[in-house]
Design a protein around this nucleic acid. Sequence first.
DNA 1: ATTATTTCGGACATTTTTGTCCTTTATTAA
DNA 2: TTAATAAAGGACAAAAATGTCCGAAATAAT
Lengths: 144, 144
Amino acid sequence: MFSKACEYAIKAAIFITSSSEEGERVSLIQIAKEIDSPEAYTAKVLQKLTKNNIVNSIKGPSGGFEIKPKSANKIKLSQIVTAIDGDSIYNGCALGFGKCNDQKPCPVHFQFIGIRNDLKALLQTTTLKTLSQDIHNGITFLKQ
Amino acid sequence: MFSKACEYAIKAAIFITSSSEEGERVSLIQIAKEIDSPEAYTAKVLQKLTKNNIVNSIKGPSGGFEIKPKSANKIKLSQIVTAIDGDSIYNGCALGFGKCNDQKPCPVHFQFIGIRNDLKALLQTTTLKTLSQDIHNGITFLKQ
DNA sequence: ATTATTTCGGACATTTTTGTCCTTTATTAA
DNA sequence: TTAATAAAGGACAAAAATGTCCGAAATAAT
């Protein structure tokens, strides 16, 4: 479904949001530990999120990553997914057609319309804040 | 969503089904041409489908691939997907947890339950016959 | 100013996926 | 029996994804 890079991005963004809500910046090392991911690779992913203005990065001592609570309320899962994997999961064709539509549909086009729309809606409505609250309330977890 | 190999597998299986319905075996060359895929790579994919008893292969002159109409009515998309990609698309966790369940859920577990179930149902109910009929009726297409 | 800290970013390594080539094996037909 | 045909399968090649290493740049504290 998602690439490894995207999985790390989602988890990292949720963790950063959680910490930022408590006024704490977090370092790469903390993030990688918390989401159980390879450090250097996670750094690359975070750089992409930074360039896409999803997370804020601060260099130097007492630096780290943060996502302002105000911002976390607006950031949707779709923004993270698009930044890392592109939009092909919910906009692309299930069988790889460059252009797949009602006029020239792939063999599973009509079957997948519903699922693709549901997935799109899910990603475009779920915010980082929501996901971060679930973590905070002990309803969900960042690692096994 | 699906790997390239799986995309080829699905398209190839549909084309073989269509041809078999008209009593015609098809060769690797015909398949690759019809679904617009690399020949040698498609051969590997077809070998997997053969080993999984999804398609029937016959060597030698007037050989080729076939799927008996009786069989096409029973073969579900899920069987093809599982044979090539495994079942992680509809059974696995969206964020890669080895075990992700209501007791120890990943951050997006509850959001994805519906989509995963819908996808599972779709794959487990859609048959090759159905997809082949849509091609035959000019409703869908195997290539752009 | 110097030092310590932390992200940035380039280069490289490994693994997986995708794709190719060529020989072997089975089968049919002449 | 021989030749032609078509899939099977091993070996290799290329590309993409994943992962690692290390020096550069920025920043804060001393």
